[in-house]
Design a protein around this nucleic acid. Structure first.
Length: 153
DNA sequence: GCCAACGTTGGC
DNA sequence: GCCAACGTTGGC
C-alpha cells in the first residue's frame, strides 16, 4: 500500500465536501498534469492512503485523511465539452487523463499547516516542501504520513 | 492581487 | 529538439 498527498482548493472541494458526499466518496477528476497523471494511472491502487491538503487558502495545510477506493479509471471530464476540465486534444480511444475515487476517512483534530510542515526537521524531504513544488498529487513515505497524522492529533 | 517557479506549446 | 512566449499554480 502506498501513501499520497493530494491538494485541493477548499473553495472548490474541501475535506468537508468530501465527508458530505454520497458514500463520502468522490471521483478525483480534473488532474491535468502529466506527472500527477502518471502517479494516478501507474501507481495508485485501491486501499492507498491519502493526506488531504488544502491549498490556495488562508492557512494551507493537511486537514484530513482519505482512502483510494477504486482502481485508476479514464477521466471522462476530458471528453466533455461542457466540463471545465474539457481537453479538446484528448483522444477517446486513447485516454490521456485518469482519475481514482477517494473516500473520506478522517479529519485531523487540527490542521497541520504548511508552515508547520516546512519547519519540521523530519519532513524536509517531502515533495511538498521542496521549492516550487506544484504537484497536486504526490507520493509521501509511510514515515511522513504517520508523522503528519500524529501532528494533527 | 502579485509574482516566482514551473509546465506546456509551437515556431523554427 | 531548442527555447521564447505563454499559461498555471499557489504561497504570500
Amino acid at each position: 500500500m502506498k501513501y499520497w498527498l493530494m491538494k485541493s482548493e477548499p473553495d472548490d472541494i474541501s475535506i468537508d465536501d468530501l465527508q458530505h458526499s454520497p458514500q463520502q466518496t468522490m471521483s478525483w477528476q480534473g488532474i491535468r498534469n502529466y506527472q500527477a497523471r502518471n502517479f494516478i494511472r501507474d501507481e495508485m491502487n485501491t486501499g492507498d492512503s491519502v493526506l488531504f491538503y488544502h491549498s490556495s487558502c488562508k492557512v494551507p495545510g493537511v486537514v484530513g485523511i482519505a482512502t483510494v477506493v477504486s482502481q485508476p479509471q479514464r477521466d471522462d471530464t476530458a471528453l466533455d465539452p461542457q466540463s471545465r476540465y474539457f481537453d479538446p486534444k484528448s483522444d477517446p480511444s486513447k485516454p490521456r487523463w485518469w482519475q481514482v475515487d477517494i473516500q473520506f476517512t478522517a479529519k485531523l483534530n487540527h490542521i497541520v499547516s504548511l508552515q508547520q510542515l516546512k519547519s519540521d526537521p523530519a519532513l524536509q524531504d517531502m515533495v511538498l516542501v521542496t521549492k516550487g513544488a506544484r504537484l497536486s498529487v504526490q507520493p509521501v513515505t509511510a514515515e511522513e504520513f504517520c508523522h503528519i497524522v500524529s501532528l494533527g492529533q
